[in-house]
Design a protein around this nucleic acid. Sequence first.
DNA 1: GATTAGCACTCGTTGTTTGTGAGTGCTAAC
DNA 2: GTTAGCACTCACAAACAACGAGTGCTAATC
Lengths: 342, 342
Amino acid sequence: MLTERQQLILNAIIDDYIGTAEPVGSRSLSKRGDIKFSPATIRNEMADLEELGLLEQPHTSAGRIPSNKGYRYYVDHLMNYGALSSHELSVLRSFFADRMSKMEQIIQQAASILSGLTNYTSIVLGPEVFNTTLKHLQVVPLNERTAVAIIVTNTGRVENRTVEIPEGVPIGEIEKVVNLLNDKLRDVPLLHLKSKLYSEIGAEMGRYVNGYEELLGLLENVFTSKEDEDRIFLSGATNILNQPEFKDVDKVKHILDLLSEAPILMRMISPQTEGIQVRIGSENGLAAIRDCSLITATYSLEGKTIGTIGILGPTRMEYAKVMGLLDHLSKQLPTVLGRWYA
Amino acid sequence: MLTERQQLILNAIIDDYIGTAEPVGSRSLSKRGDIKFSPATIRNEMADLEELGLLEQPHTSAGRIPSNKGYRYYVDHLMNYGALSSHELSVLRSFFADRMSKMEQIIQQAASILSGLTNYTSIVLGPEVFNTTLKHLQVVPLNERTAVAIIVTNTGRVENRTVEIPEGVPIGEIEKVVNLLNDKLRDVPLLHLKSKLYSEIGAEMGRYVNGYEELLGLLENVFTSKEDEDRIFLSGATNILNQPEFKDVDKVKHILDLLSEAPILMRMISPQTEGIQVRIGSENGLAAIRDCSLITATYSLEGKTIGTIGILGPTRMEYAKVMGLLDHLSKQLPTVLGRWYA
DNA sequence: GATTAGCACTCGTTGTTTGTGAGTGCTAAC
DNA sequence: GTTAGCACTCACAAACAACGAGTGCTAATC
């Protein structure tokens, strides 16, 4: 347990360092208004904090910088979520005022706003298909052998896939099947489409349609959601380049490469637990972002977690501000999304 | 007009510099097998070439590097398209063997291959809607006030937009309109949809449908293609970070920011003229890529230019190799795309 | 006993100097 | 016309000193 004064000093150091990216020394700390001890006292405390692993020294005669553990302590015990500035509030208000966009646009916009307001990179995981249901299935033949299958969900999302029409299946048959499926599958959650297809529809289809086995395989392919990739929205990827700690091109390359790998991002920000989560430096597990912190917040609808919004920045991140923002947005986002689930 | 020997030397310098990114001196040149003059002679020639503006000297006692004008001369007069390596050929062959993907996937894949084989950034402009025609129009109501309008083209592309249903228009009416439109607009080029909508359909619609004015406005919105953004495909954006001339993070940031602006890319690679085009350094006009060269090749179908493939790299680019590749791919691409226009 | 002034010490940063070597331009010999 | 030779230039790297921000420790002070 840290003493009052140690907390004060740790807090001040992190505060300074977040602002300047320079190691902070005892003398400059003692000049801050909120610290009323001499540099010598501060030095003693700093030595103790270093021994506890909360601070580290780049080299002997430099100031101290927070260690990952230091940031962790700060986040867990010292920090309060920042209140939103009036500017932030007004940006968010105008975002929430928009009632026209379709869901994907809303999510993309949310990502843009996050990266715009923070100058970090935002990663947003769009709503899970969860209770997304099938609204309409359509097959449009393009020529004799190809057709495009289209799925419309109740959230307004449209997915499509090109399929090859098996030899010897006349267009008429396909239409019959599609009509049947539309009747049977309307309002069925996407998640259950495949199982329902086999358990209930398969047999019935056999009665009406010739060669339905091929069609079944085809439909399975159509219903296999490629959602995983599509749920990831990125914004402000190049913002890291603004941070002084990423002057090194090689480090940056690894990060940018990582950001273009949707499946990895997916794993990174999939909600492990509800609420706001902070992963500092090596806590992320990925070497490429060992100097980054990732803050994520889940958002829910009707008590179910359906997605995540996240910010990736240097470990020297404005935690309070970012967490304030994420907290606010994650709570408001469902109200905008809500109408798609009416 | 350059003498034989000047050409030989200029060619050698560019060749060397492309490989090493280091200024090349007279001594190292004279050691090349293909140059049989003494360093002194070479120096004299280099001085002349510099006077002509084809070479420049970073500083007095360094070797020479090609100027933009030097590259230009090289591209226009000295260089031959590189023959494709067996590796390149095999990659391309397996690409062209794929007959299943839908068009967007083909284009995206082409971009990936280009960036993969060159280690530069590839920018591809997908086929123009040009003779893309409407295959099917569909409106799926989501709830009382919203619907999603879907357009399917003969190329298998699916576009969709969320629309608000005007008050007092019953679902039945909408269905009627959609059926009418499907009859009238099938196989009409997307480009002409809007004009046709007004010139021919508008009046007729008035006869059958109440409140058709609102619907017209709505449909106009739907038919306004947002294609411009969607036609751009990027790959290997972070490859620039591998080039030694882009060690500087600030330069890189400008380029990466540029690459995320679809409209600017659009303008950059829209085909001005048929065939392969090389824009070197400042010839691009954009400050952010003043140290880059952009090589583009148009591809055509039935004599009409329908799109562009391009490579963005440092001015010190492997012109011969890249142009060989682009030439090959731009000629082959239409054969894969062809079936969508059958 | 906690705090602080004082001081010697460390070490990265900055600026200067000094070689070093790759490369040049020029001149004179071939 | 070509080339050998040579003096010269200049970026780059190493070596070095001065600087100063910052430290740890000790002893005086509150």
